[in-house]
Amino acid sequence: MDALKSAGRALIRSPSLAKQSWGGGGRHRKLPENWTDTRETLLEGMLFSLKYLGMTLVEQPKGEELSAAAIKRIVATAKASGKKLQKVTLKVSPRGIILTDNLTNQLIENVSIYRISYCTADKMHDKVFAYIAQSQHNQSLECHAFLCTKRKMAQAVTLTVAQAFKVAFEFWQVSKEEKEKRDKASQEGGDVLGARQDCTPPLKSLVATGNLLDLEETAKAPLSTVSANTTNMDEVPRPQALSGSSVVWELDDGLDEAFSRLAQSRTNPQVLDTGLTAQDMHYAQCLSPVDWDKPDSSGTEQDDLFSF
């Protein structure tokens, strides 16, 4: 819950932080000083300027060897085509990944977070970031790969997607708890209302004896509580940590079903599988986004697919 609360507080303090972009060759504004600060901008989305290598189908939802083989196929196909790589912007948030063309600003792909089953910074092609997700059109699994400016960037994108998945799962947990509370309150309110109706004398007997209905007592009954809980029953509950912020979080049926399955089948359902080692994760978390744009010590960066 700490990640969720800190993310909400950060967004309320400075929503404009989320509009910064990394990996864009110096076009961005001043960047936060450390990885923790940038992680807090996830709610509205972190932007990464990358190059799209392509996509291939895979048979399993996750796995280092599986993704490595898929990336190898994608890279080989991209090299064989001889075409310049498409420059894209990857927007990562707890909602998922939005992929747009840098030149036309046209939407290429919009992947809900619950469809993503794996992401990684490839070991062999260490400047490549990739994720595996279920197609929104059918049940097939797709591996999408992107060329980053350097290994640090690939690791940073991988960690960002993993963190977005974690925050999304926490949102789901909060929403589920809130819905259970509202359902319980609604049920209790309905029981109270039913009890009051059972003990209320029939209207005919009131008229016969000349008694008047006590409207004041009726007004004191917990009807307002019942209506408050039943009027918006169809509205999706939102985490309290975000009250007053500009973010509107809505959970669709697909996300609810997917996270429910994860909660039942996995020990740590909030953790998205990645190909990063503990050492890689520690190294990337210690980086400032400013470091992502620094040239690798191995030599001059080449803006070309064939540089790796």
Rank of each mutant, 00 (worst) to 15 (best):
T38G: 11
K176D: 02
S140P: 15
G82A: 13
R238F: 03
D214Q: 09
A185H: 03
R13H: 13
K84S: 15
F129A: 09
A228G: 07
L147I: 11
T200S: 05
A76F: 04
N102L: 04
F306S: 09
Q163E: 06
S307E: 08
A168C: 12
A219I: 12
M281N: 04
T104C: 02
I74R: 15
R29M: 05
T100E: 15
I108A: 04
G54Q: 13
L147H: 15
V128Y: 12
V111D: 13
L99S: 10
D256S: 03
W35A: 07
L255T: 06
L206P: 04
F169R: 01
G96H: 13
K179F: 05
R182D: 14
L147S: 11
F306A: 00
S205L: 12
L53A: 09
Q86F: 08
L90S: 15
K166S: 12
W249A: 14
S6K: 10
L53K: 08
R73V: 15
S67V: 11
D296W: 01
S298K: 05
L255H: 11
P15Y: 04
V247W: 10
D296G: 00
R27P: 10
S224N: 01
W22L: 02
K62N: 13
I74A: 12
N102I: 10
D122R: 12
C199Y: 14
S298H: 06
A10Y: 14
E40T: 14
S260H: 05
R238H: 07
M153I: 05
P201W: 02
A284C: 15
S298E: 06
T277C: 05
V111W: 15
A78H: 11
G26N: 02
V161L: 15
L206M: 04
N102D: 09
Q86N: 12
L141G: 12
L223C: 10
A68H: 12
L212G: 11
F259G: 02
L90P: 12
C119H: 00
N110V: 01
I71W: 04
Q279A: 04
G96V: 12
T120H: 03
M46N: 08
A241E: 02
E44M: 09
Y114K: 00
A278H: 09
V271F: 12
L272K: 06
A78L: 13
A278S: 05
V226E: 09
F129T: 08
K184R: 13
L103S: 12
E44V: 10
R29V: 06
Y114N: 03
D304M: 09
L193H: 03
A76N: 10
I132A: 05
Q264K: 11
A168Q: 05
L193R: 12
G8W: 00
E142G: 15
Q197L: 04
T231A: 10
K179G: 01
F146V: 14
G254Q: 12
E217Q: 06
K79I: 04
F48M: 11
A76C: 09
R95P: 14
G96R: 15
E180N: 07
V75G: 03
K91A: 11
R115N: 05
Q279K: 12
A156E: 06
E142I: 12
P94Q: 10
V226I: 11
D291W: 08
E180T: 10
E170N: 05
L287C: 01
L85H: 15
W172E: 01
K72P: 10
E216R: 09
D253C: 03
V247C: 00
V88Q: 04
G96Y: 08
P295H: 08
S260A: 04
K72C: 11
R151T: 03
Q134V: 13
N105V: 06
Q197F: 08
K91V: 08
A263L: 13
S81P: 12
S205K: 05
K127R: 12
A219Y: 10
S224E: 02
K62I: 09
S117T: 12
T89F: 10
T300I: 07
E217Y: 13
T120I: 06
K204M: 09
V247T: 15
G25E: 11
L90R: 09
P222T: 05
P239K: 02
S186T: 03
M55T: 13
S245A: 09
L305F: 11
S265T: 00
Q240N: 01
R115H: 01
G190R: 05
V290T: 05
L287T: 03
P289D: 08
C286W: 00
G244C: 12
A258Q: 13
G244L: 00
M153D: 07
V248T: 09
A145L: 14
R39N: 01
A3P: 09
T56L: 12
T209Q: 09
D256N: 10
N232H: 11
T100K: 14
F165T: 01
S260I: 02
Q86T: 04
E188D: 14
D280C: 10
L31N: 13
A80M: 03
L103Y: 02
Q163Y: 00
K220F: 02
D122Q: 10
L213E: 00
Q86W: 13
C286D: 00
L11V: 13
G194E: 05
Y283R: 07
K19Q: 12
K220N: 01
K87A: 07
S298A: 10
P15E: 00
R151W: 12
L53Y: 13
S49H: 07
D198Q: 02
A68Y: 04
F171C: 02
G194S: 02
D191R: 14
D304Q: 10
T225G: 09
R95T: 02
A133P: 05
K79S: 07
E64C: 12
R182V: 09
T120K: 08
E44W: 14
I113L: 04
Q279H: 05
E180W: 12
T200P: 10
I74L: 11
P237I: 04
I116E: 11
S246K: 00
A154C: 04
Q134H: 11
L212R: 14
W172Q: 01
L276Q: 01
A221W: 07
G24Y: 05
L262F: 02
T56Q: 10
T41M: 14
L42C: 10
K150C: 03
I132T: 13
A80W: 11
K220C: 06
S298L: 01
N105P: 00
A221V: 08
L242G: 10
P15W: 04
L206F: 15
L305A: 08
I12C: 08
R238C: 06
E188A: 09
L53H: 12
S6I: 10
L4V: 13
S246Y: 00
E177P: 09
A3N: 11
L50M: 12
S117V: 15
A18C: 04
V236H: 01
R95F: 07
G275Q: 06
T41N: 11
W35T: 15
W249P: 12
A241H: 14
D198I: 07
H282R: 14
S205G: 06
L85E: 11
T225M: 12
L223H: 02
D198M: 10
E235M: 02
A221L: 01
Q264M: 01
A78G: 14
K87L: 09
H137I: 14
A164H: 03
L99W: 12
S140D: 12
E177Y: 06
E44Y: 08
E216M: 10
L147P: 14
K184S: 11
K179P: 05
S298G: 00
Q155T: 05
R73E: 10
F129R: 11
K87S: 10
S117Q: 03
D291T: 05
V161M: 02
P32W: 01
K150V: 10
V174H: 00
V58N: 15
A219R: 02
F48P: 10
S67F: 08
A121R: 05
K184E: 05
K62A: 11
V58S: 14
G54T: 10
D2A: 06
E59H: 10
L57M: 10
L4D: 02
L215E: 06
S246T: 07
K166I: 06
R95D: 09
E44Q: 10
M153W: 01
V161Y: 04
K150W: 06
L212A: 06
H282D: 06
G23D: 02
R182K: 08
K176T: 09
L31K: 10
Q302H: 00
P239V: 03
G194K: 09
S117N: 01
D234Y: 11
K79R: 02
S243F: 04
L107S: 07
L147W: 11
R27H: 03
E65K: 08
D256E: 15
Q197R: 05
W249M: 03
L203K: 03
D101S: 15
Y114R: 00
T160R: 07
K79T: 08
F169A: 01
K62E: 06
F306H: 01
F259K: 04
T225P: 13
M46S: 02
E142T: 04
A258V: 07
C148V: 00
K84Y: 14
L159V: 02
V174R: 00
R73A: 09
C143D: 01
L193A: 01
H28E: 05
I113C: 01
L212Q: 06
